[in-house]
C-alpha cells in the first residue's frame, strides 16, 4: 500500500498551481482579478502557494462598480495589504466620467458598464493575461469555457471557436492586442471552495456568515435594503437573519436566510442545499444566455 495519494482537494490545488505558474511563465504582463469574494480568496492562496517565497509576480486588479458591499471593499484592501500585493482599482464611476462607459437612459445596474471599465484597465496597463476565479459549475456558459480563454483584440469571447485544450498543455500565444483570461479553479465546485477555505483556514468577508439585515422581497428573493435599494411604498421591510452565498452588486445580490456562523455550518448548509448559488443573483436570471452574452462582450 503506497501513501502516494492526493485527495480530491489536493488534486484541484495542484492543477490550479500549475496553471498559475504557466501564466507567470508564458505572459509578460499578467494580472490577478481580486474582488474579495470567496473564489478570488482561494485564488490568492493558490498564488501564494505557486510563487512564495517570492513576491506575487503580478498585481491584483479589481473593477469597482460603485455598488459593492462596503464589507467587501474593506476586506479587499486589507487582504491585499497583508499580502504585500499591489492592488489596482478602477471604478465604473471614473469610466463613466471619462466617457469610456456610457450608461443607457435609466440604466442603474453596473453589470454591463463594468465590461468597458475592465477592458480600459487592460489597455491602460497593457495586461496580456487576467487570472479570474470563475468556476464551471456556476453557470451553463461558464461550463463551456477553457482554462485559457482566448479573447480577441476587442476582448470578445468566441464560444464557437475556442482553442482546443489538450491534457495540461495550454497554448498561451497571442498576437498584438489579444488577451487571455485564465481560470485556474474552473473545475472547483462551490463545495470545494468552502472545503478549501476551511482546510486553509482562510478569512472571508463577514457577509458570508449569518447576520441580521433589513430585507425586502423582490423577484422571488430577499434583497438587502440600502441607499441604492430603498424599500418601495408597498413593500414590507423585514429584519432577517441572513447570509450571502455569492456576492455580486448590492442591488442584485439576494440574501439567503441562514443561521450559519462558521465555515463548518456553511459546508453543512451547502450539502443540503436545493438551489444553486447563482439562484440568488438577479443578473443571471434576466435571460437564459445572460452570462454568455456578457462574456462575448468581454466580461471575465
Amino acid at each position: 500500500m503506497s501513501s502516494y495519494h492526493l485527495d480530491h482537494l489536493q488534486h484541484l490545488e495542484t492543477e490550479a498551481i500549475h496553471i498559475m505558474r504557466e501564466v507567470a511563465g508564458e505572459f509578460e504582463r499578467p494580472a490577478l482579478l481580486f474582488s474579495g469574494g470567496k473564489d478570488s480568496i482561494c485564488l490568492l492562496r493558490l498564488a501564494e502557494k505557486a510563487f512564495r517565497p517570492s513576491d506575487l509576480p503580478m498585481p491584483l486588479l479589481n473593477v469597482d462598480t460603485g455598488h459593492h458591499f462596503p464589507e467587501l471593499n474593506e476586506f479587499r484592501d486589507r487582504r491585499a495589504q497583508e499580502l504585500g500585493g499591489k492592488l489596482i482599482v478602477r471604478t465604473v464611476e471614473e469610466a463613466i466620467a471619462k466617457g469610456i462607459a456610457q450608461p443607457a437612459p435609466g440604466e442603474i445596474s453596473r453589470n454591463r458598464l463594468q465590461i468597458p471599465t475592465l477592458l480600459a484597465a487592460i489597455e491602460e496597463f497593457r495586461f496580456d493575461c487576467c487570472i479570474g476565479g470563475a468556476r464551471r459549475d456556476e453557470e451553463k456558459a461558464r461550463a463551456k469555457e477553457r482554462f485559457f480563454s482566448f479573447r480577441d483584440s476587442f476582448g470578445q469571447w468566441d464560444p464557437k471557436n475556442q482553442r482546443p485544450e489538450i491534457w495540461n498543455l495550454y497554448n498561451g500565444r497571442l498576437n498584438q492586442g489579444e488577451n487571455m483570461r485564465v481560470f485556474p479553479i474552473s473545475n472547483w465546485t462551490e463545495m470545494d471552495v468552502w472545503e478549501y477555505i476551511q482546510r486553509e483556514q482562510l478569512e472571508v468577508p463577514s457577509i458570508y456568515f449569518s447576520h441580521k439585515r433589513q430585507c425586502v422581497r423582490r423577484g422571488g428573493q430577499w434583497l438587502p435594503v440600502n441607499a441604492l435599494v430603498p424599500p418601495k411604498a408597498n413593500e414590507d421591510v423585514r429584519e432577517l437573519v441572513v447570509r450571502v452565498r455569492t456576492i455580486g452588486d448590492i442591488i442584485s445580490t439576494g440574501c439567503v436566510e441562514s443561521p450559519a456562523t462558521t465555515t463548518t455550518d456553511i459546508i453543512a448548509e451547502i450539502a443540503a442545499a436545493r438551489v444553486t448559488e447563482r439562484g440568488s443573483r438577479a443578473d443571471d436570471k434576466s435571460s437564459e444566455a445572460a452570462m454568455e452574452d456578457r462574456k462575448k462582450a468581454g466580461y471575465f
Binding site: K144, K160, Q162, E292
Partner: peptide
C-alpha cells in the same frame, strides 16, 4: 449551454459538469 447549441439542438463545445 450556448445559445447556438440550443437553437440548433446540437453540441458545439465541451460542457463540464
Amino acid at each position: 449551454g450556448l445559445r447556438a447549441e440550443r437553437e440548433q439542438g446540437i453540441t458545439i463545445d465541451v460542457a463540464y459538469r
